[in-house]
Computed example of a mutant assay.
Amino acid sequence: MNITVFCSAYSLDEKYTAPAAEFARLLGAGGHTLVWGGSHAGLMGLLADGVKEAGGRLVGISVEFLAHKTYEGADELVMARDLAERKAQLLARADALVVLVGGLGTLDEITEVLELKKHAMHEKPVVVLDTEGFYGGLRTQLERMDAEGFLPRPLAELISFAAEPAEALALLEEKN
């Protein structure tokens, strides 16, 4: 599978990096391809290193203004004109999507992917690896939207949450 992963480009505490490294190892060992933001920085770089070391393939999709942060060991590196084109390519190249811990960019990516899925613009599995309950607030908000009729489809059709890396990968493989 081509698995697009949205995550932080910042260096983070081990409570976040250890599960990300384990997910990367599982992804690579499973023969999957990582499709990601193409950066060597922070969690993005750790993820790419782990996938590559475990035998997986790397497809980076960066943007021109971040060219100085691109990962040099990618099997394929695409330079998008802007963030909108980057997001479109990250989705287009994906068989499935995973969200790891991240900031505003990650939140922007996941909400766009969910909006497109809500409108049946894609049917790719979306899984959040909810390390340390990082996305508890997002999950609560999405559940409220679902319960109060703000979603035209059941939330369970749009997204899944996993507590552990192996569970996240299993959910992707089950739904794909």
Rank of each mutant, 00 (worst) to 15 (best):
11 S>C: 10
132 E>H: 11
36 W>N: 09
172 L>N: 05
160 S>V: 01
94 A>V: 02
63 V>H: 01
6 F>R: 06
176 N>I: 15
173 E>Y: 04
80 A>M: 07
80 A>E: 06
40 H>G: 13
85 E>I: 03
92 A>E: 12
44 M>D: 04
85 E>R: 07
137 G>D: 09
125 P>R: 04
65 F>I: 09
95 D>K: 03
75 D>N: 14
56 G>Q: 05
94 A>E: 03
141 Q>G: 15
71 Y>L: 15
97 L>K: 01
136 G>V: 06
116 L>W: 13
36 W>E: 02
121 M>I: 11
92 A>S: 13
91 L>Q: 01
139 R>L: 05
124 K>W: 02
71 Y>E: 04
108 D>M: 01
131 T>R: 04
55 G>N: 03
170 A>Q: 10
72 E>C: 14
122 H>M: 11
14 E>H: 08
102 G>F: 00
29 A>V: 00
73 G>S: 13
22 E>N: 12
54 A>W: 02
89 Q>A: 11
88 A>V: 13
146 D>K: 06
61 I>F: 04
125 P>F: 08
25 R>E: 12
106 T>R: 01
77 L>F: 09
92 A>K: 12
49 D>L: 00
47 L>Q: 01
158 L>E: 04
86 R>G: 03
9 A>S: 14
161 F>A: 00
90 L>R: 05
133 G>E: 08
161 F>E: 00
155 L>Y: 02
95 D>C: 10
111 T>L: 10
100 L>H: 06
112 E>F: 05
31 G>E: 01
132 E>T: 09
42 G>Y: 02
90 L>G: 05
66 L>M: 10
170 A>L: 09
5 V>F: 07
19 P>M: 08
167 E>G: 12
163 A>F: 08
16 Y>K: 02
97 L>W: 02
87 K>G: 07
113 V>T: 12
146 D>R: 02
60 G>T: 14
85 E>W: 12
107 L>H: 11
165 P>W: 00
165 P>D: 02
2 N>S: 11
28 G>I: 00
10 Y>S: 15
112 E>S: 06
43 L>W: 06
4 T>S: 15
151 L>M: 07
70 T>Q: 13
113 V>C: 07
22 E>A: 15
10 Y>H: 15
148 E>K: 13
163 A>I: 07
43 L>I: 06
115 E>M: 13
48 A>D: 01
166 A>D: 10
84 A>Q: 14
168 A>Q: 02
23 F>W: 06
29 A>K: 03
123 E>R: 15
137 G>P: 05
153 R>N: 15
96 A>H: 00
152 P>V: 09
36 W>V: 00
101 V>H: 07
26 L>Q: 11
26 L>P: 06
6 F>G: 04
117 K>M: 06
